[in-house]
Design a protein around this nucleic acid. Structure first.
Lengths: 182, 182
DNA sequence: GTCTATACGAAGATAGAC
DNA sequence: GTCTATCTTCGTATAGAC
């Protein structure tokens, strides 16, 4: 169900996806939603962020490369698979959530704070990526900068791919990204 | 009113923004919405895309640079202003719209086709940018690739800035982007 | 735990008066 | 053209039976 919601959020956004959509898509029982997600839609979104983050981290940790170029290529491969599997229709679920959330209203809310959860997820991703770049001999400051830029480039590339109905923007972005490192 | 809607779409997404929000924010009269936007919310979104696109193109056309690095810096400056003016809260209005739209359902719709309008806008932006890069002596294929990657990087950077509540991701991304060209 | 039914509110869109 | 009022739909969330 979380998996299903992640797919829907990535292609229609958080506000654009209703509980009914998630139920219809996942086949989950309607009456038991609030047993599993007492916090309602916000909690579902929070769980989607956590689940997505874990998926990303699992991929990153399996990185076999020991060169900066190889590390970036492995990172890019994660997003390439997402684009190809969905016919260039899926974006990043986390992006689909945060774009729909009023950041300031969200920060005040005691329960939820989706923006904060997304921030933590992004920080984890760039942290691991920067660590791997450092391990190839790149200085820490540069590694963090490259990691942030890489995530930004991929998030944006996914948006462009969706709009273009094509994986070309991802490949263009990937090619240039690899030009950043020796 | 379009300007107001653009700001709201960029910070809360299309589905996350209601007509009431736009009215409250812009001070426009409630009863006359459907005089100005007979197509309803979809048409408002379409007009926001067109308006935003024109803003971006106007900025790009005013580019004073004649080096690849200068061209990219000018392009980056456009997004930097947006981030700084909003306290890192605003994303790209076009991104806020397309993320919330079901791409496939949208393509079938006769009226609207927001994804198509967004595609045209992005194509215009990268087209102008690629042209300027070519004018500095960059080969066409590379210029198009760099232009696409630059737009992707900025769109993604805006998302990261919003989540981080900081302009640092933009600056990191900008620094690396400039490393792509001599 | 899962289901059906429903309360409650919000949002898009329309009608008709001024 | 603009306003008020309203209709209809939809979505979240809850209540209570099985």
């Amino acid at each position: 169900m979380i998996c299903s919601a992640a797919a829907l959020f990535s292609s229609r956004g958080l506000s654009g996806t209703s509980f009914s959509d998630v139920i219809a898509d996942s086949g989950a029982p309607r009456g038991s939603i609030y047993h599993h997600f007492p916090g309602g839609k916000t909690q579902l979104a929070a769980d989607v962020i956590a689940w997505t983050s874990e998926q990303v981290l699992a991929h990153l940790r399996a990185c076999p490369a020991d060169t900066a170029r190889g590390v970036l290529a492995w990172f890019i491969e994660l997003w390439r698979r997402s684009v190809q599997a969905s016919g260039a229709s899926a974006g990043c679920p986390v992006a689909g959530i945060v774009v729909d959330v009023d950041r300031d209203a969200d920060a005040g809310a005691a329960a939820g704070d989706l923006t904060g959860q997304a921030r933590a997820a992004f920080a984890d991703w760039t942290g691991v990526l920067a660590g791997q770049l450092q391990a190839t001999g790149m200085p820490e400051a540069r590694a963090r900068s490259v990691a942030t830029a890489s995530l930004a480039a991929m998030e944006g590339a996914l948006i462009l791919c969706r709009v273009e109905r094509s994986s070309v923007p991802l490949e263009d972005t990937a090619r240039e990204l690899l030009n950043l490192v020796p």
